[in-house]
Simulated assay, not measured.
Amino acid sequence: MACSENMFFLIGLFMSGVLACFGQRDLIASMPDRLDVLTGSCVQIPCSFDIPDKHKDTFNSAILLSGVWIKEFPYLDLPSSPILTVSGEVKEGTPVSLNCSAVAPCPEHPPELTWTLPTQFTTENQLQENPDQTKSVLSTVTFTPSYLHHEKNITCTAVYPVGTSNKRAEHNMTLNVSFSPKDTSASISPDDPVFVGSCVNLTCSSTANPPVTNFTWFKISEGKTTQVASGQSYTLNVTVGDGGLYYCQARNSHGCGMSNEVQLAIKGHEEPVNPKVFEIVGKTLGLIFLFSLIVFFAWRRRTSRLPSGFDMTDRSQGLVGMNSPVGTVCSNQATVGRGNQ
C-alpha cells in the first residue's frame, strides 16, 4: 500500500520504542521506550509527531492523517516496582517528604499506592503526566523522623485493579536518619577501689549518625570540672590526686551527648578534706565560744548586784538594835541562856 500525500503508517516497535513512518513526507514521531501493561486491563499508548522545518511550508494540515500500530512481540504482564525517592536529608526532628511513583498504563484505573512506615504520617496522591506523555501516580508522605527510626524499613505498595482481581508491586527502602549522639555512657574498669599505681581504663560509648567524631573526658573534683583527656578510651596510672568523678562527652556534626558519672575510688586513701570545711568549722566554734563568754559575763554582772544572805542579816540586826528595844531583848535572851547553863 502506497502512502498518498500526508498519509503515513505509524509502526510501534516495543523492542526499542522506535516509531517509524513510511510515506512521501518524513515526519518526526515519538513514543515511550517501554510500556508495562497487565492482562485484563486497558492500556493507553501515547504517540506524538512533528513536521520537520523544511516541510512545514508545504505540508497540508487539512488532510486527515491515519496510522497503523504494529506489535512485534507479547507485552509484559507484571507491574513494575514503584520508584521511591527522598527529598533532602532525613534528619532527626526535621519534617521530610518521601515520594513514591508508579506507572499507570490504564489511566482510567490507576494503581492505588499504600505506605508502611514506623511512625505516623500524612499522604497526598495525584495522577500526573510524564515527559513521554505516559501517566503515573505520585504519592507523597510527610513525617518527622526520630533517631529511633534509623535503619527501619519503609515500603510503598502499588495495587493494580485487573478485572475482578488485583496485582501488586512494592519497593522497600531502609531509612537513613541523621541524629546527634544518643545513649552516651561511660564505664570504668575495674570499677572497684584501686591502689595507687594501678592501671585503670575508662571507656565512652554512644550511638550517632554520622558516627561520633570526638570524645572528651571530664573530671569533677572538689566541686570543679576539668577537661582531662580526649578519645573514646582514657587510660591512666592511678595517683593520689586521680580520685573523683569522671564523665565523657560525645560529639558529631549534629550535636553532642553527655554520659553518666563514674567514680574512681582509691583503696586505702581518704580523699583530702576541702579547706573550706576547716574554715566553716573554725568559724562555728569561734561563734559558740564568743556566745558562751557573753552569757557568762552577763550572769556574773547580774549576780554581783545582789548582797549575800549573811550580810543582809547582819545589817538588819544592827539597824533594829539602834532604833528599838529588840536589840536589848536579843541581848537579854543571850544572858538568860548563859545563866541557865
Rank of each mutant, 00 (worst) to 15 (best):
V68F: 15
S80K: 11
A104S: 08
W69V: 15
S304I: 09
M173T: 04
V68H: 08
K54N: 10
R34P: 05
N60C: 03
T203G: 02
F143T: 03
V196K: 00
E124T: 15
V262K: 11
Q249N: 13
L245W: 15
G23N: 01
L138H: 11
C42Q: 07
L19M: 14
T140I: 05
P32D: 09
M312A: 11
F278S: 03
S230Y: 06
K267P: 09
T94V: 14
V295T: 13
D311G: 13
P105W: 12
V281L: 12
L127C: 04
D192L: 04
P193W: 10
I45R: 01
V68M: 11
H269V: 15
P210G: 08
W299I: 04
S198Q: 09
A250Y: 00
F9L: 02
E89W: 06
G327C: 02
H55D: 15
L13P: 04
N6E: 00
L293D: 03
P118S: 07
D53M: 04
E270W: 07
R25M: 00
L148S: 04
V273W: 09
T235A: 13
S178F: 06
L285R: 03
K219C: 08
I63S: 01
I70D: 06
S97H: 11
K224C: 08
W299Q: 09
G339C: 09
G337H: 06
P32E: 09
K54A: 08
V238M: 05
S4T: 01
R301G: 15
P46T: 09
L19A: 13
V295I: 09
H55G: 02
L202M: 04
N130T: 08
S205G: 12
G40A: 02
T213G: 09
V90I: 07
S165P: 08
L287M: 10
K182G: 00
F218K: 15
S304R: 09
T203V: 05
E92V: 04
E92Q: 12
D53I: 03
R168H: 12
L319R: 13
W69I: 13
V277I: 03
Q24H: 04
V194L: 02
H150P: 04
L290H: 05
G321R: 12
D50Q: 11
V96Y: 15
K152Q: 04
G337S: 09
S80V: 03
V194N: 07
G163K: 07
Q126S: 15
L19E: 06
Y147T: 12
V240R: 00
K135M: 11
G223K: 05
T140W: 06
T85Q: 11
I154D: 00
G255F: 08
T303S: 12
W69R: 05
F73V: 13
P32S: 06
E72F: 15
V238P: 07
D26F: 14
N340V: 14
R302E: 10
